[in-house]
Amino acid sequence: MARFLFVVLPVVSHLSAPLAVGQALEAAGHEVAWCGPRSDLRPLIGPDATLHPTGKRHYRPDAASGMDSVRSLWAGHVLPANRFIRDAADRAVADYRPDVVVADQYALAGALAAHRHGVPWATLCVGVLELTPPTDEMPEFDDYVHAQLARVWAMTDLPVDPALDLRFSPYLVIGLTTAALTGPAALPARCVLIGPALGRRPNAPGFAWDAWDPVRRHVLVTVGTMAEHLAHDFYRRIVVATAPLADRVQVILTAPPGLVPDPPAHVLVAPRVPVLELMPRLDAVVSHGGLGTVSEALAHGVPVVVAPIRHDHPTVARQVTRAGAGRTVSFRTATPAELTSALAAVLDDPAYAAGARRVAESFAAAGGARAAAAHLAALAASAPLSHQEAR
């Protein structure tokens, strides 16, 4: 059996997939350790799991879109976060001596540490911004990102390897999607698409099931955990938009206390919900376009209304629309009437549910977390004997 070290960043939406893959590896008899923020990881991995803590650097994204959001992502989060965890990631690889490092695509310090110590690593792509870059809409994207990668190399004393793109492992790249969404997009070398990685979530919150109306249809509205500070007006418009549907639709809206004051009777507001428990019971999801939430919905055959905000959200929205699994609206400018129309369409037109089911079938065939674990185990088995003996 092999040893795997997961290197993650302190972004809640980036933790569910590696957790599921780690669970699948452990179920197959492998040993799994973690490098990341103790406060985020310990409730997920339990008290006995091996954890190499990095500390936590908070990231509060702004409302920028397009290339401005990409610049904000790299300058405000990726670069400082990797500078912050660089030494901890290096110590974790040196001390734990894994057979394979599994690094979040933006945890570039994990890739660098593996490279330094001669350990093969896999890239886990929890979004599609890098996997299927929006170069048609952002022609400067590639040049800008490569300039930022040069700055990452400059954080170390390692000689720059111009053939090595730290975003994509030369050993294995795992994408949490399928061709049903990406279409014919060119993918990195050694890339496998396994669909969403879904597993147990020990920190899932409870839910007020006594308020659940079994007669009405159900819609989950969420903008994830990183954009709630931008969502006040969007949520206001959603509440107005769903009023004409209130006799037949119940809305479950995730928002912190006070963001949606005095919700009407057809709207249940909760700061967090057990998403995977809710999904089989939902008829539609309204989302900002984070790949995790959208994939979780589509994995259950639930159509989506996507209101993209930034980063890879517009790409996800285009992919959902192209797959016939949902509609796209403007997060910033969609009127209540436009939101009502989009939501009524995905609820009432069976073509959208059929599109979501087609994507769900592709996800199931791709294998999810168990497929990722199998690819990682194969990579560990192919590691040079010299490396395994050194451990």
Results as ranks from 00 to 15, higher is better:
284 A>C: 13
125 C>W: 00
373 A>M: 10
25 L>D: 14
360 A>K: 12
271 P>Y: 08
70 V>W: 14
252 I>A: 10
118 G>L: 06
124 L>Q: 05
339 L>T: 08
186 A>P: 06
99 D>C: 07
190 R>A: 06
271 P>Q: 12
254 T>C: 04
97 R>W: 04
243 A>L: 03
152 V>H: 03
230 L>H: 15
161 D>Y: 09
391 R>N: 11
290 G>C: 10
279 M>G: 08
67 M>P: 11
209 W>C: 04
279 M>F: 05
2 A>C: 11
86 R>A: 12
187 L>G: 11
116 R>E: 08
339 L>S: 09
151 R>Y: 00
359 V>I: 11
348 D>I: 03
80 P>N: 04
54 T>E: 07
14 H>I: 12
119 V>Y: 01
94 A>E: 11
183 G>Y: 03
217 R>W: 00
12 V>P: 00
70 V>T: 15
27 A>V: 04
363 F>Y: 12
306 V>Q: 12
310 R>L: 05
124 L>D: 05
367 G>F: 02
301 G>C: 09
87 D>A: 09
119 V>E: 06
37 P>L: 03
43 P>C: 08
305 V>T: 12
210 D>S: 15
384 P>W: 02
301 G>N: 13
57 R>A: 06
45 I>P: 09
267 V>T: 01
280 P>A: 03
154 A>E: 13
350 P>I: 06
325 A>F: 03
371 A>E: 12
288 H>V: 04
56 K>N: 08
189 A>W: 01
86 R>C: 01
356 A>I: 04
35 C>V: 09
130 E>S: 13
21 V>N: 06
6 F>I: 05
329 V>G: 14
25 L>H: 00
378 A>E: 13
7 V>T: 15
134 P>N: 10
200 R>S: 14
354 A>K: 01
245 L>T: 11
350 P>K: 05
138 M>T: 06
122 A>L: 05
308 P>A: 08
12 V>T: 12
236 R>I: 01
43 P>H: 12
119 V>Q: 02
175 G>Q: 05
251 V>M: 03
120 P>C: 02
300 H>E: 02
136 D>N: 12
109 A>G: 09
121 W>Y: 15
104 D>L: 01
332 R>S: 09
34 W>R: 12
14 H>Y: 10
23 Q>C: 10
264 P>N: 08
216 R>S: 04
119 V>F: 06
290 G>V: 04
237 R>W: 03
71 R>T: 12
382 S>A: 15
64 A>Y: 00
68 D>N: 09
29 G>S: 11
156 T>H: 02
204 A>K: 07
300 H>Q: 10
307 A>F: 07
21 V>M: 03
49 A>S: 15
83 R>Y: 00
70 V>R: 15
96 Y>W: 07
193 L>K: 13
359 V>N: 08
